[in-house]
Amino acid sequence: MELIWQGITAALQLLITGDAEVIGITLLTLQVSGTATFISLILGIPLGTFLALKQFPGRRFVLSLVNTGMGMPPVVVGLWVSIMLWRSGPLGFLNIMYTPTAIIMAQAIIAAPVVVALTSAAIQQTNPKLRLQIRALGASNFQYLWLILKEVRFSLLAAVIAGFGAVVSEVGASMAVGGNIKGYSRVLTTATVLEVSKGNFDIAIALSIILSLLAYLVTLALTLFQQKRQGE
């Protein structure tokens, strides 16, 4: 019990005094996971829409792959991205191994299947008659897609929340491709692992509280945004 109190006290201390290292780690976490989620949306929403609306041979197979991808273990992604980014690997010339960019890359790969699968599920659930009617009213292709995406905006935000939640909480990929380098590629999850192995449980608890708080605040913001119309 004493340890938990120590952890909570340490967390408050770190937050109130504004410990520069912890603030840096927190901002980097937000920046890396935010960018990764953003990239996964740019890739995932069009792909999910395509899979939902287009009929082609092998579509169900692709969907099953995407659905499996939602549960892809971050360490597996971390390993494969490492193999690609190492100096000896096919993308070694990019020189981005052990950088925040490498973490963003891995996390975008982790979040993308979540976005694709949830987008495509949401669009498939819209009423086919509605789609037909939009067409009948003479909407252009672009207008048609825009209206459908607007129709499923609740589910799209759920996809954003799920994607961000998946990447902000993962440690395996960040450790493997980021290297947990102090003041550079250390994020909240890898910092927590390090403090545990250093035996600094109070700081580890403090970091875990900050991470939970960060995840909660971002989710709260997205939820309020999602529910904005509902209250009026």
Partner: peptide, 12 residues
């Protein structure tokens, strides 16, 4: 923040 992120030189 994420917009101006991803620099490859360490900040700290």
């Amino acid at each position: 923040l994420s917009g101006c992120g991803t620099t490859s030189t360490p900040q700290a």
